[in-house]
Nucleic acid binder design. Structure first.
Length: 273
DNA sequence: CCTGAAACCTGTCTGC
DNA sequence: TGCAGACAGGTTTCAG
């Protein structure tokens, strides 16, 4: 389920809490369960459990699609990949452990659960988040991500726009849905070569990226199929999963193709190459 | 540097 | 009803 808006939504819930999802700031760890060993990317299970015991949560933040849980002298990083999700159970509440991979039990009785049916998600325990996130490109919602910077970044790349925008070392946070939506908003074909964009086209794409991400966050992310629930953005897609439906701008039928092994939706009239 | 394919996984949906 | 095959919000690795 997770692209930047879905991850941001989860981070905000972890920090502030809401009904049936209590906050975890200040919570002290009593014990750790690791139910699928490969979910822990680093370090060893023994070392992770030993280190985490007795630590308290100081803050929760996001870098690209990584969730960063700060504790004393150590950081827990979580990447949800394709099917991961986080939930926090109030004291006394339990749930079927189907697909649970990693659990932090807090002294208060709350549980932080990493649920991940497809087992692609990963957890890291490191003393410095940079050990995991240093290769990421700029965050598209960060103040330092200016239209001018973006244009310079694009000029240096002779790559197709769609795979480039999804490359986390280029830009951190875009995934398949929001990339298609942003390219549609900017009226750019997914196969356009990045270095061929004019200043106006770069700026339009910059604006489109921030617009779709902010709308996604405002709507608490997108819920699709059986994986993620809670968000509303799926009801506002302009092209994603709208193959065969008319473009809201020109009325031409939305098409689907494959780009970089990913299903790609676009309007052949509004997004000419 | 860039592209495409395969691998890592389970669940759901479609079509025969 | 059953079953094979396609497909799914991501990333890494490898061949060319």
């Amino acid at each position: 389920m997770p692209e930047l808006p879905e991850v941001e939504t989860i981070v905000r819930k972890l920090k502030s809490g809401e009904k049936d999802f209590p906050r975890i700031i200040g919570e002290e760890i009593k014990s750790v369960d690791i139910l699928w060993e490969r979910s822990l990317a680093f370090p060893s299970i023994l070392e992770a459990k030993t280190t985490l015991m007795g630590k308290s949560v100081i803050d929760v933040s996001r870098r690209g699609k990584f969730i960063i849980i700060e504790m004393d002298q150590v950081y827990l990083l979580i990447h949800l990949r394709m099917s991961g999700d986080l939930l926090v159970l109030p004291p006394g509440k339990s749930i079927d452990i189907y697909h649970h991979r990693f659990i932090l039990h807090f002294l208060s009785g709350k549980d932080l659960i990493f649920n991940d049916p497809r087992k692609f998600g990963r957890v890291w325990l490191v003393t410095n988040p940079d050990e995991v996130t240093s290769k990421l490109g700029p965050d598209p919602l960060n103040d330092n991500f200016s239209p001018e910077l973006f244009h310079e970044m694009l000029l240096r790349k002779k790559r197709q726009l769609k795979p480039l925008l999804m490359d986390q070392t280029f830009l951190a946070g875009m995934g398949n849905i929001y990339t298609d939506e942003a390219l549609y908003l900017a009226k750019l074909h997914p196969l356009r070569i990045a270095s061929s964009l004019s200043m106006n086209e770069s700026h339009a794409l910059h604006h489109a990226i921030q617009t779709v991400l902010n709308e996604g966050i405002d709507r608490n992310g997108a819920s699709i199929d059986w994986v993620y629930r809670g968000g509303d953005f799926q009801n506002h897609f302009k092209v994603y999963q709208r193959k065969g439906a008319p473009c809201q701008h020109c009325g031409i039928i939305i098409e689907k193709t494959i780009v970089g092994q990913r299903g790609t939706y676009y309007c052949p009239e509004c997004q000419k190459i």
